[in-house]
Design a protein around this nucleic acid. Structure first.
Lengths: 234, 234
DNA sequence: GTTAACAGTTAACGGTGTTCACTCAAATCT
DNA sequence: AGATTTGAGTGAACACCGTTAACTGTTAAC
């Protein structure tokens, strides 16, 4: 580790920290090259020694945010050691709290990710890999819940043969769960994502000014479906 | 109607059409003042005779897209006159098809709408009003379904007293449906929105490369909960 | 027929991401 | 140790962005 490499690593971290600060305070649009450079006492072209483009900087920031969110949720779930149901409940609420506290970051991570059809070239992007690590969190937890106490799942007629085939192909990533159980776990994630998206993006205001009670009811409902004894809303 | 007013209306329509074209081809970022102006053989400052700002132009475009989507869904549902369940099914599938065919427009309408907390000033924006007209579509249909054949809804213990109070306050907008029924209708909309968001934003690729079968299964499941006889997936 | 209103232009300001030529210090090689 | 290469950083510039101001014609109104 040269003295130059140390300096490089330090400024790189400072750049990402500054970008993060700007994102939190002013949204995605606030992450300008000159603004970031100003925060670390540099000029804009100097950042091209660290990132090939503005987009690459934002992508790296996305990856860091994913990892930060993942570790935050992991240690949040660690508080309820053993009770996997409570862990999933904490995870869901933790994700919602994080999204509401950091709407700009949430929009950057989970919103408007226009996926270019050519999947090959950007599947190895740091953001994608961090997203996979985040997704694995839910995958592993759902699989653990299933293997601890298998929950009833919809009969095959509800899913359809095509979906069953698709889910069976993914069974290796879910530790050999049956397709119906994978379906229910996926349903949990889908509904959770949809609820948080609607709330963060303000798509729920026209019917519910405050979505906390609705969120809890939904969580309770889907938790019941998975055989968990979630705390009932009051 | 002066000759000047005619010209004004014509160019205004041309501006919005050009903006729409740019949105479709290149996403939201492609709607630049100079780009729009170039499309209608004008210079950028000329557009300020028609819109006070770039944002106002985009907002108007959002309103137009909402109305276009609303009418498209209305006439799509009109094909199944009488059968309200089939109408809801067509609406859901129509919305998904539209979103997948026009991802940029969908992202503009339903994604990343950062809602400023000061709700007073922009509640009368044309985009908001058009969004209300769109939302009314689902509201009315759910209410009609309920009044035609009331469906069973979750007991009060599942919802919690606070949510029941909130939903009761909104009952006037749902033609006097009980809170539990409103909850189920809202659940339909929430799950539909979440599913489409996930699919359009590419948030489902890491587990399902093609989400059509999953979408159908989800639609069938929630349709069953509302007492509808949707076509079962195969 | 004069006057006021208005669509549209050009020029400019501050901002953006990005590239190029350049300087200077640090690491490497002889 | 001295020469040489690597690389971080700068300043100027390019093409773009949204926006404003001053200005030119044409059209409507009195």
């Amino acid at each position: 580790m040269n003295r130059r490499d140390e300096a490089r690593a330090a400024t790189l971290a400072a750049i990402l920290a500054a970008a993060r600060r700007l994102l939190v305070s002013g949204g995605v649009a606030a992450i300008g090259l000159r603004a970031v450079a100003r925060e670390v006492n540099l000029t804009a072209p100097a950042l091209y020694r660290y990132f090939p483009s503005h987009e690459a900087l934002v992508t790296q920031l996305v990856a860091d945010l994913y990892d930060e969110l993942t570790t935050a949720l992991v240690e949040l779930g660690g508080e309820s050691e053993g009770d996997l149901g409570a862990q999933l409940y904490l995870l869901a609420n933790g994700l919602r709290d994080w999204a509401l506290a950091h709407p700009a970051e949430f929009a950057l991570l989970f919103g408007t990710t226009v996926p270019s059809p050519d999947a090959e070239d950007h599947n190895d992007t740091p953001g994608h890999q961090a997203a996979m690590r985040f997704g694995a969190l839910f995958k592993e937890l759902v699989a653990a819940i299933w293997h601890e106490k298998p929950f009833p799942y919809p009969p095959d007629e509800v899913l359809g043969s095509q979906l069953i085939a698709q889910l069976s192909a993914e069974a290796v990533h879910f530790h050999g769960m049956p397709p119906g159980a994978i379906y229910l776990g996926l349903t949990y994630w889908t509904r959770l994502y949809g609820l948080i998206c609607m709330e963060v993006f303000g798509q729920l205001h026209w019917v519910l000014p405050e979505a906390g009670a609705y969120f809890e009811a939904q969580l309770y409902e889907i938790g019941l479906a998975m055989g968990l004894d979630c705390p009932a809303p009051e």
